[in-house]
Measured scan of single mutants.
Amino acid sequence: MFKRLMMVALLVIAPLSAATAADQTNPYKLMDEAAQKTFDRLKNEQPQIRANPDYLRTIVDQELLPYVQVKYAGALVLGQYYKSATPAQREAYFAAFREYLKQAYGQALAMYHGQTYQIAPEQPLGDKTIVPIRVTIIDPNGRPPVRLDFQWRKNSQTGNWQAYDMIAEGVSMITTKQNEWGTLLRTKGIDGLTAQLKSISQQKITLEEKK
């Protein structure tokens, strides 16, 4: 169930391209415009997507990853294993993690069937560096609404905000991946996880038929 919630949630996290980005210092504006741009692209490019579902990787690479804190999220997933990894191991892992996100997020976007969304009203940021933004996803086919909290983090150097995690039903996506990959990290280390991520990233994206 959580895996499905995570995939549905990713439908609204794909941010804007650099040329049309919203105010990078306001995570609420980023979330709002990102959702609108993403849904528009999914709707307008269905012919290309249906002809070649792996085209979704391109959308992810162009529109999402430049505005997601990939390395920060990847380091959180590694936890204690990050500090013990060599620079070469980290570089290989982050490259594999990025390719994994292209496949995983692309597969999530393949679930698009006309969903709509509501974003919580903007709250004062103050001096906060981590801000959760509640998004409610509404399914046109009558499924119950899904309420999610996207975690946005302020870059201490640039002042810009980027998304790095999502919490559904009190469970963090980062925590879920830590639990899912924990045994592999304990037995085969970061190299074993890197190899698995490379394998997963090679899987073809498949479209979910409308139910």
Rank of each mutant, 00 (worst) to 15 (best):
N155D: 04
V131A: 00
T136I: 13
A18E: 12
Q69L: 02
I59D: 00
S17F: 08
L101N: 14
L148W: 06
P132H: 11
G142W: 08
Q178D: 02
E45V: 12
M1Q: 00
Q118S: 12
D23V: 09
L193N: 13
R50D: 08
I174A: 00
Y55E: 09
L197I: 04
M166E: 04
K188P: 10
Y67H: 05
G170D: 03
Q203T: 11
M111N: 05
Y81V: 08
Q157Y: 12
Y100I: 14
D61Y: 10
V68M: 15
G79V: 02
S199P: 08
A120E: 13
Q151M: 06
E33H: 03
A19F: 03
G126C: 11
T38I: 08
K210S: 13
K204R: 13
A92D: 14
L30C: 06
V131T: 08
I13L: 14
R134Q: 01
Q151N: 02
P145A: 00
Y72D: 01
P144A: 00
V171I: 00
E99L: 14
L10V: 07
R143M: 03
Q178M: 07
D149A: 00
I59E: 04
P145K: 04
V70N: 15
L125S: 14
V8G: 03
E180F: 00
T25E: 09
V60D: 03
L185T: 14
G170P: 02
D23G: 11
D61L: 04
R98C: 11
A110W: 13
Y82H: 05
T183F: 05
I49Y: 04
Q178V: 02
T86G: 09
S84E: 12
K210Q: 13
Y28F: 08
Y82G: 01
M7K: 07
V171E: 07
Q203C: 09
E33T: 04
M166I: 01
K211P: 09
R134T: 03
Q107S: 09
V135T: 03
V12K: 01
V146A: 00
P15I: 02
V135A: 00
A163W: 15
A88S: 14
L76G: 01
P15S: 14
Q162S: 13
L5I: 07
L185C: 08
R41M: 07
V135H: 07
I49N: 05
K71N: 06
E91M: 13
G182C: 04
K177R: 13
L193I: 02
K43V: 05
E91L: 12
V70P: 15
M166H: 07
V131W: 09
M166N: 06
A96N: 13
L184S: 08
K37S: 06
L5E: 01
G189W: 10
Y164K: 03
W181N: 14
M166A: 00
S199I: 13
Y93R: 00
A21G: 12
P132W: 10
K198W: 09
I138C: 14
P15M: 10
N26L: 06
L56E: 05
A18S: 13
T158W: 11
I200F: 14
Q202D: 14
D32E: 08
A168K: 08
F94C: 06
E91K: 08
V60L: 04
K3Y: 06
Y55H: 12
G142C: 03
Q157K: 11
Y28G: 07
E180Y: 04
G192H: 10
K71G: 04
K128F: 05
I119V: 06
E209S: 09
E33S: 04
I190P: 06
M173G: 05
V60R: 00
R143C: 02
S201K: 14
M6S: 01
R143A: 00
R4F: 15
A22L: 07
L148H: 12
A22H: 14
D149F: 00
I49L: 15
P87Y: 06
Y164W: 05
R57L: 15
L184V: 03
A168N: 08
Y55L: 10
G142V: 13
Q103D: 15
I205P: 08
Y82L: 05
T176M: 03
V8K: 01
G126V: 10
F97L: 02
G189N: 05
K71E: 05
T158K: 06
Q103S: 15
P121N: 06
T176A: 00
Y105I: 01
M7V: 06
G170W: 01
L78T: 05
K177W: 12
K211M: 12
A108I: 00
N179Y: 05
D165T: 04
E169A: 02
A108K: 06
T183I: 09
V70G: 14
P121T: 08
Y82E: 01
R90M: 02
L65E: 10
G74N: 00
R4D: 05
A168G: 00
K3A: 01
K37A: 08
A75K: 00
R50H: 08
T194W: 11
N44A: 11
M111T: 05
V70F: 07
P144S: 06
G159R: 13
H113K: 03
T58N: 10
D127A: 00
I174K: 15
K71F: 03
R50F: 09
V70Y: 07
I13M: 15
R41L: 03
R90P: 02
Q107N: 10
A95G: 14
L185P: 13
D40Y: 06
V68S: 07
A96F: 06
Q36S: 12
H113D: 06
L193V: 03
R4W: 10
I13N: 01
A104W: 12
D191R: 10
M111G: 03
P66K: 05
L16V: 12
T206K: 14
V70S: 14
I137F: 13
W161V: 11
P15G: 12
P87N: 11
Q115Y: 02
M31I: 05
V135W: 09
F150D: 00
A22C: 14
T187D: 02
Y100K: 03
P15F: 11
V68G: 02
P124A: 00
D23P: 11
G170N: 02
A35L: 12
V68E: 04
L78H: 02
K154R: 14
L193T: 13
N44D: 09
Q115N: 00
K177D: 04
Y67G: 03
T206E: 10
L197K: 15
E33M: 06
L109K: 13
D23S: 13
A92K: 12
K128M: 12
Q118T: 15
M173I: 03
K3T: 02
E33W: 03
S17M: 14
Q46M: 08
S84N: 12
S199H: 09
A120W: 15
A110Y: 15
G170F: 00
A35M: 15
K102N: 10
F94E: 06
Y28A: 06
A120I: 14
T158N: 05
E180A: 01
F94S: 08
S17T: 13
D32Y: 08
K102T: 15
I190H: 11
G192Q: 11
Q89K: 07
T175K: 04
P144H: 09
L65D: 03
R153Q: 01
T136R: 11
P87L: 10
F2G: 02
D23N: 09
L64R: 01
V77A: 08
W152H: 05
G106R: 01
W152V: 11
E209N: 08
M6R: 01
A9Y: 12
G79H: 05
R143V: 05
L207K: 13
Q202F: 15
V135I: 02
I133H: 11
T116W: 11
A92P: 10
E122S: 13
W181Y: 11
R147K: 02
Q157I: 08
D32S: 12
A85I: 05
P15T: 15
P66S: 09
Y105K: 01
P66Y: 09
A104H: 01
V12F: 14
A75D: 00
A85W: 04
Q80H: 10
Y105T: 00
Q115C: 08
L197H: 15
R50W: 09
L125V: 14
M173P: 01
E33V: 05
A168M: 00
M1P: 00
M31R: 01
A73Y: 02
W152L: 03
Q115H: 02
R153G: 04
L76R: 02
D139G: 13
R186D: 00
Q89R: 06
N155M: 11
I205R: 09
P121Q: 10
T175I: 00
D165H: 00
A34F: 14
K198F: 15
K204N: 08
A35K: 01
E99F: 09
T206A: 03
S172V: 00
L10M: 08
L65I: 14
Q107W: 06
A110T: 15
E208R: 15
R90S: 05
D149P: 03
T183K: 09
N160C: 09
W161H: 02
K71L: 01
P53I: 10
T175V: 08
L10Y: 08
K211R: 11
Y112V: 03
A19H: 05
T206Y: 10
Q24R: 12
K211H: 10
G192R: 15
K29P: 14
P132I: 04
A34L: 13
A9D: 02
I190S: 03
V171M: 01
V60E: 02
Q48F: 06
Q80V: 14
Q196G: 12
